[in-house]
Computed example of a mutant assay.
Amino acid sequence: MVKLKLSAVSTIFLLLCAVMPSYAADPATASGEYAVLGGYGITHRGFGATVTQVQTVDAILRYGYFLSDEVAKGSLVQGRHELLVELPLHLTVDPRTRIMTGLYLLGSWKFTGLSEQKLYPYAFAGGGPLYNDLGLATQGTRLNYSYQGGVGMQYLLRPGVAVIGEYRYHHISNAGTAEPNEPLNSSKILLGISKQF
């Protein structure tokens, strides 16, 4: 049922991208962007205090708003500041099927120096609250917090539409508000599509 819902959301988004007019040529000139990402995550047992293996299937809705025009033009770091707001849905498939969801606020730097090749690398970091219903005895509360950072690449398919590949390090813990407090340190690989406006 969850796969069907994720497929339906992805299909609707792709159709909207196909029929909506493009208001901006690329991330170097856009005001913002919408994106949907999906992928897989797994914890790293032994990294920090992580002892439990948790695997997830992830779906993330993203809204990005550019905070600046291009800066440092002509340099290796030419790019733009972007604020990302994400609504994540992490469906755990191991050790049991459960849901994690919340709200992430991320700061991003989008490199625009490779626009002639239609490539837009980016780096980001941030976090936010996360409701966690994993039922693990090693976690003392369902209200947790996540911080994360990662890198990604957008490839412009046509004006205003890009495909995304992304890696992120993802941390979950309750910030010491309850005991026990096993952190879940994981890696996530995500693919998606974005629409600039």
Results as ranks from 00 to 15, higher is better:
2 V>L: 10
3 K>H: 08
5 K>N: 09
5 K>T: 13
6 L>E: 04
7 S>A: 14
7 S>E: 01
8 A>T: 04
8 A>K: 01
9 V>C: 03
11 T>I: 11
12 I>V: 13
12 I>C: 03
13 F>N: 02
14 L>N: 14
15 L>N: 11
15 L>E: 07
16 L>P: 04
17 C>K: 07
18 A>D: 05
19 V>S: 13
20 M>A: 15
20 M>L: 15
21 P>V: 12
21 P>S: 12
21 P>L: 13
22 S>R: 06
23 Y>D: 05
23 Y>C: 08
24 A>G: 03
25 A>Y: 14
25 A>P: 07
26 D>E: 11
26 D>C: 05
27 P>H: 10
27 P>A: 14
29 T>L: 04
29 T>R: 11
30 A>L: 07
30 A>T: 05
31 S>V: 13
33 E>M: 14
34 Y>K: 14
34 Y>E: 08
34 Y>N: 10
35 A>C: 08
36 V>S: 05
37 L>N: 06
37 L>S: 08
38 G>L: 01
38 G>K: 00
38 G>S: 08
39 G>A: 01
39 G>K: 00
39 G>D: 00
40 Y>I: 00
41 G>I: 00
42 I>C: 06
42 I>V: 13
42 I>R: 13
43 T>I: 02
45 R>N: 13
45 R>A: 11
45 R>T: 13
47 F>I: 11
47 F>W: 09
48 G>N: 03
48 G>A: 04
50 T>Y: 02
50 T>Q: 02
51 V>C: 08
51 V>E: 11
51 V>D: 11
52 T>R: 10
52 T>C: 01
52 T>H: 04
52 T>A: 02
53 Q>L: 06
53 Q>C: 01
54 V>K: 08
54 V>G: 03
55 Q>I: 01
56 T>N: 06
57 V>S: 15
58 D>M: 00
58 D>E: 04
58 D>P: 01
59 A>Q: 12
60 I>Y: 06
61 L>F: 15
61 L>I: 11
62 R>L: 13
62 R>W: 07
62 R>S: 14
63 Y>E: 04
63 Y>R: 10
